[in-house]
Computed example of a mutant assay.
Amino acid sequence: MQLRPERPADAPAIASLIAQAFDGHPHSGGTEPAIVRELRAAGALTISLVAVDETGNIVGHIAFSPVTIAGRAGRWYGLGPISVLPALQRAGIGSRLMTDGLARLKALGAEGCVVLGEPAYYGRWGFAVHEGLVYPGVPPEYFMALAFAGGVPRGEVAYHAAFAAQA
């Protein structure tokens, strides 16, 4: 398994992978491929990594994009989506993408990262709920942050406008 930054020719395979990974997921509206497409078009995919198997097929993907906190842009990023082919989930691909992606984000000078997701999964990397850092409209226990430098800011988080993309 090789991890590498996405290449322009990877876009269709990434979209297909994301669609397969989120198909039928109870917390998905099916917009994840469109979100990544729109982030890419806006130049807002700060990090977009793929996991490639020994035959050259893309089997995993992770994206990080800028967020604002309390209306201010800074060096905080949002993780997501993260996708692994359904047949290969729970084989460590997502964990490798997470570990490598977070290391790359830190190397860029990021101050931290937020994620909306399952606490038991993302907690393994140190993500935790932080009072005063909020993302409206979701249960607060599923919105977490990980600070790389300094503390966790307070305020309402907004993801890039691409997160409003429709399928």
Rank of each mutant, 00 (worst) to 15 (best):
P26C: 05
H27E: 14
H27V: 08
G29L: 12
G29K: 08
G30S: 05
G30P: 11
E32V: 02
R37P: 00
R37W: 00
R37T: 05
A41Y: 00
A42P: 05
A42F: 00
A42H: 05
A42M: 00
A42K: 00
G43F: 04
A44N: 11
L45D: 12
S48H: 15
L49K: 02
V50N: 06
A51D: 13
E54G: 15
T55S: 15
G56K: 01
N57W: 09
A63W: 01
P66D: 10
P66V: 03
P66G: 10
V67D: 14
V67E: 12
T68V: 11
A70Y: 04
G71F: 10
G74H: 06
R75Q: 15
Y77R: 00
Y77E: 11
Y77K: 00
G78P: 09
G78V: 01
G78Y: 04
G78E: 03
L79M: 06
I82G: 12
I82F: 04
I82S: 06
S83V: 04
S83P: 09
S83A: 15
L85A: 15
P86V: 02
P86M: 03
L88D: 07
L88F: 09
Q89E: 13
R90E: 13
G94F: 11
R96T: 12
R96K: 14
M98I: 08
D100Q: 15
D100S: 13
L102E: 10
R104M: 03
A107H: 07
L108K: 12
G109P: 12
A110T: 02
E111S: 15
G112H: 03
V114H: 11
V114S: 12
V114L: 07
V115W: 09
V115P: 13
V115A: 07
P119D: 09
P119E: 04
A120M: 07
Y121A: 03
Y122F: 14
V129I: 08
V129Q: 14
H130E: 07
H130D: 06
H130M: 02
G132T: 05
L133Q: 04
L133A: 05
Y135Q: 10
